[in-house]
Design a protein around this nucleic acid. Structure first.
Lengths: 115, 115
DNA sequence: AGGACCTGCTAACTTTCCTTGGCATGTGCA
DNA sequence: TGCACATGCCAAGGAAAGTTAGCAGGTCCT
């Protein structure tokens, strides 16, 4: 009835940690305008490919962007990235709900009930 | 016409970085239920006061919680914290807008136009 | 006076993240 | 063949964040 699915605590932390970086925000902003391939995006943002690779990987791991390997007309393999149309609403209430499903970093975590 | 004020890029990063931590999420969740003072909250969360202090300070710096110093009936100074009723909606579009106001960590940053 | 509360701070260690540079692979074209 | 462009990965140093332990101050009650 809401609009976005309730994120689990661990997912929330992962997404927030991923988004909490200027470079990654710029990447999302750039991809929101138009999809791009790695080398081109690196030039556009003025950062090294290696650095961009790391950031793209984290964004992909958080499910915020997706990669699509394509063959260009001249036969080169281009890895195109595009943003996932996510919608995340953050309020004390949704955080309180997400915290209920937070895994404890301590001993072994199993997906049972905590408390 | 929306609901929340458009966050500046730097503010966004700060808020996201602040929220991207299990301890701090737990703090927000606890305070969303009921306001609390430092020592009591530390006991409730099962962490040390020193650690909680650091996290509370970051949350306060991001404007997510506020502190209120009160004198209890028995004369003790209690520092009560409570959540700020924030509402943050995250989408590729709002991120693209926020990125426009991102400060470059490089030389001297002045609030002019970037690019 | 001593114990039980409350508050705050700092130094120091550990862990994680960020960033760079180099290396390896492949395709197309002059 | 050599250059330009694309992809990827890994090692290593530096910067930032998280965490602990300890110290110091205050009030109240027994």
């Amino acid at each position: 009835m809401s609009g976005a699915p309730p994120p689990t605590g661990d997912d929330l932390v992962r997404v927030l940690a991923t988004l909490a970086n200027p470079h990654r925000l710029r990447v999302v902003a750039a991809l929101a305008r138009e999809r791009a391939y790695v080398s081109g995006l690196a030039r556009q943002l003025g950062i090294s490919r290696a650095l961009l690779q790391v950031h793209l990987r984290k964004l992909a791991a958080a499910g915020l962007v997706t990669a699509r390997l394509e063959l260009s007309e001249d036969g080169k393999a281009m890895n195109y990235y595009e943003v996932e149309p996510f919608v995340l609403t953050l309020t004390p209430a949704v955080i309180a709900a997400a915290v209920e499903t937070l895994t404890v970093p301590d001993s072994g975590e199993q997906p049972g009930a905590q408390r």
